[in-house]
Simulated assay, not measured.
Amino acid sequence: MATKAFQKIYTKITQITKATCSLKATGVGYDELASVDGKLAQVVKIIGDEVTLQVFSGTEGIRTNAEVVFMGKAPSLKVGDQLAGRFFNAYGEPIDGGPQPEGREVEIGGPSVNPVRRKQPSELIATGIAGIDLNNTLVTGQKIPFFADPDQPFNQVMAMVALRAKSDKIILGGMGMTNDDYLFFKNTFSNAGALDRIVSFINTTEDPSVERILIPDMALCAA
């Protein structure tokens, strides 16, 4: 990562664990992004001038004199119409071979929506599965978590729910998915002609597991 002239470079790391490193720094904020020897990291704790960074890809190979540069901003996403039909990683970067979308840059993890001012979800999403439609009815506008045993066809159910929902956009956040899972959703939505309604944020089993904590905030930011 190229540094700007006004960015201060720190070169004294005081502690390194498997996923985090600590150093003394000033003028940084919570959730701020940083580069540690070229690896992306995020501020997770500040006590006085002692700053702890979570390194997304792990600290293996990082030395105590590694260069640390703070970026001055939290993780963000460029929101706009160009997100439609696209697949992104946990950082909001395209993984489908398409161009980087343009739009208004919005920091993820912002303040929650006031539930009193939020439009009450009321439009039914019919899945055709009696156990869901009768006992755990889904409605447009709500976050829908799926928990299932490994031998259950959860991918097929999720894709069916997304395709049946009568809404402008469907936001899919996948954490720890296999590449086969990712390709299943991409091909299913494409074959159904519904790709322009889908915005997906995917973390696969080949990606660092720590990155998965960004997926829910990316999905909510896009929504």
Rank of each mutant, 00 (worst) to 15 (best):
V68E: 03
G58A: 14
F56Y: 14
S209K: 14
N187K: 05
T178M: 09
T137Y: 05
T26R: 10
G103F: 08
C21I: 14
I144M: 14
T3N: 05
G38N: 12
E107C: 09
I16L: 02
V157P: 14
V44F: 02
I13F: 02
I202V: 15
M175F: 07
I129H: 13
S57T: 15
A126P: 01
V28Q: 04
D31K: 10
A159W: 06
L163K: 09
D180Y: 05
Y10C: 04
Q120W: 00
F184Q: 13
V139D: 02
V161G: 13
T178G: 15
S190Q: 13
S22L: 08
F154Q: 12
K166R: 10
G80R: 03
I46A: 05
G174K: 06
P153R: 14
M158I: 14
K143D: 02
G110P: 01
I95L: 09
A25Y: 09
L23N: 15
K18D: 11
T11L: 05
T137C: 08
G38Y: 02
T52C: 08
I62C: 04
M71P: 00
Y91F: 15
I170P: 07
A66C: 07
F185D: 15
D196R: 08
T11A: 15
T52L: 04
Q82M: 11
L195W: 02
P115D: 08
Q142K: 09
R212E: 14
A19T: 15
R197W: 10
V55K: 00
V68H: 01
F88L: 06
Y30R: 04
E60K: 14
R197M: 07
L23C: 10
D151T: 10
D181W: 07
P99R: 11
A90M: 11
A219Y: 07
L40R: 03
A222I: 11
V161Y: 10
E107V: 09
G103I: 02
A2Q: 01
A162I: 06
P75T: 00
V116Y: 08
A41L: 01
V69P: 00
A159E: 13
D31M: 04
T140C: 08
S35H: 00
Y30K: 03
